[in-house]
Nucleic acid binder design. Structure first.
Length: 398
DNA sequence: AATTCGTGGCC
DNA sequence: TGGCCAAGAAT
């Protein structure tokens, strides 16, 4: 049974408008922090995952330090993104830009092109801004405390704590989705996320050891990724099962309790793929902020909430012999997009800002996945996302 | 505090 | 197949 101090009624309820300042309640865990981290770290020493940006516990004990640049880069990429998806991108980035100064010196178009396909493109913009701040104002060395790290673009609560703990041995409370799940099961927290975050953080702060805080953080995340999984957790194999209230009650899978989310609406629009005689495709750059900010696209209309028809060739960015060649669907986080795909062939004078991209250049363009779907529907031969240098030097043409 | 930001994999 | 989920941040 969950202890009553985790009753959702206590954390969610109506707020008093008068005197009592809304101070986070001081929850005390009944878990023995020393016993807990000892058991967890012993498991981690044997079962830790081997990842390209990591230093193993053995190497760590031998005095080897993780490279803050690689830790930072991996943490940015891993925000809301799976390890499997990140690996290839991490290799590409570190091969092309081995040090933070190298990344800082790169053109922003090159960074966006390398990031294309990974999603959440504000991360790439912030990544580049952060690299330039570190290279410029910090002499190429990352600040070493969570508080200072958090002041940098793209680095928030989680990432600042993770870098500080992993690269600089600060006993910061590292709370990501894995840790939220593990902790909510340990304490059988009934309050739904995201409201329960302060409570979870309070527990993690008490559990985090001053010795090996980085390994502790990574161990919690590895545990969440391999044992304490969202569905069918392998409690039998869990090194901290003796500490787990939810598992003891046989209902680990019931946690974490989450607030239910709203249904996603649908938006519609049209994309216009102009193809020249030599096979070049007309592309332009999207505005620097907002959805797919700074990324490339064939011209599209705005995406309205279910425009009832009224799209078609009349919405084209410039006159041409447009033919409707298909339709694509793409799911974003908060809406589903349906895009009509129109194509025009032959010599054309777009008369708008943009450039012609040759067939062999398309793979290296900063095209997000949804736009690659559009090109595919327009029967454009586009090899798998690759990385070319061509986007760095290309001038804007018309 | 609630929204706005992508994408791919999985059952 | 469709909802859920993944090392969240910014506003």
């Amino acid at each position: 049974m969950p202890r009553d101090r985790f009753d959702p009624a206590l954390s969610g309820g109506t707020k008093r408008s008068r005197c009592p300042p809304p101070r986070p309640p001081s929850f005390m865990t009944t878990i023995d922090p020393t016993a807990f981290s000892t058991a967890l770290l012993a498991w981690y020493d044997v079962h830790h995952r081997t990842l390209p940006w990591r230093v193993s516990p053995r190497e760590r004990a031998a005095g080897l330090r993780a490279d803050p640049y690689r830790v930072w880069l991996s943490e940015i990429m891993l925000q809301q993104t799976t390890v499997a998806a990140v690996k290839a991108y991490f290799e590409k980035f570190t091969l092309r830009w081995p040090r933070v100064e190298d990344l800082a010196a790169a053109p922003d178009t090159a960074v966006l092109a390398e990031w294309a396909g990974l999603g959440y493109y504000a991360r790439a913009r912030n990544l580049h801004a952060c690299a330039r701040m570190v290279a410029g104002e910090y002499s190429g060395r990352f600040p070493e405390t969570a508080a200072a790290l958090k002041a940098l673009p793209g680095i928030g609560d989680y990432t600042s704590a993770a870098i500080a703990a992993i690269a600089f041995d600060e006993p910061a409370a590292v709370v990501d989705g894995n840790v939220e799940r593990v902790t909510s099961r340990l304490e059988a927290i009934e309050a739904p996320l995201p409201g329960a975050k302060p409570l979870i953080r309070a527990v993690v702060e008490q559990l985090t050891p001053t010795e090996r805080p980085g390994d502790f953080a990574q161990a919690m995340m590895d545990l969440g990724a391999t044992i304490c999984t969202p569905t069918k957790p392998a409690c039998v194999l869990c090194p901290v099962r003796p500490f787990c209230t939810a598992s003891r009650a046989g209902e680990a899978e019931r946690y974490p309790v989450k607030q239910k989310k709203k249904a996603v609406p649908e938006r519609r629009g049209a994309a216009f793929v102009a193809v020249r005689g030599d096979g070049a495709v007309f592309l332009r750059r999207r505005p620097g902020t907002g959805m797919l900010g700074g990324m490339s696209e064939p011209p599209t209309t705005s995406w309205s909430a279910r425009s009832d028809g009224a799209l078609g060739a009349a919405a084209a960015p410039f006159p041409a012999e447009w033919r409707r060649v298909g339709e694509i669907e793409h799911g974003f986080t908060h809406f589903r997009l349906v895009l009509e795909v129109w194509r025009a062939d032959g010599e054309q004078r777009p008369g708008i800002e943009g450039w012609w991209s040759q067939p062999q250049e398309i793979a290296g363009e900063a095209l997000p996945t949804v736009m690659r779907k559009v090109l595919k529907a327009a029967k454009i031969v586009a090899p798998a996302p690759r990385n070319s240098q061509s986007t760095e030097t290309r001038k804007t043409a018309r």
